[in-house]
Simulated assay, not measured.
Amino acid sequence: MPAGRILGAEWVKSSGSMGAGNCVELAKLPNGGVAVRNSRHPEGPALVYTREEVVAFLDGAKAGEFDHLTA
């Protein structure tokens, strides 16, 4: 879905982003889902996930399941 078509979305990014323009931004959707976009392309595509998918991902990240990706 084009990110620009998600009307009223309030995009946020991590405070850990260094402002270099290469950030992942997220927006909560009215249906409880979450949209994800690349800050370098704010009008580009957005991936949309259900609340349950986001919870599962965050739980895995907190448990260290993806640490090998940044090692």
Rank of each mutant, 00 (worst) to 15 (best):
H68S: 15
F66P: 01
L69D: 08
I6N: 05
K28G: 13
W11Q: 12
L69S: 01
T70E: 05
G32T: 08
L69G: 02
S39Q: 02
G60S: 10
L58E: 02
A61I: 13
G4S: 14
F57E: 01
G32P: 07
A3E: 03
G44D: 03
E25R: 06
L58Y: 07
P30G: 06
M1P: 12
E65L: 15
D67Y: 10
V54S: 11
G44N: 08
V54K: 01
L29G: 03
T70F: 14
V36F: 06
S15C: 15
L69Y: 11
F57T: 06
H41W: 12
P42G: 09
P42H: 07
N22Q: 15
L26Y: 04
I6Q: 11
H41N: 13
A3M: 06
G19W: 08
R40M: 05
L29I: 05
T70R: 14
H68P: 09
A61P: 00
G4Q: 10
G21R: 08
S15D: 07
G33L: 07
L69P: 09
L29F: 05
V12E: 11
I6L: 15
A20W: 08
C23M: 06
V54R: 09
M18C: 09
G60D: 06
A27N: 10
Y49L: 14
H41K: 10
G32W: 02
G33M: 03
E25A: 11
K28I: 09
L69N: 05
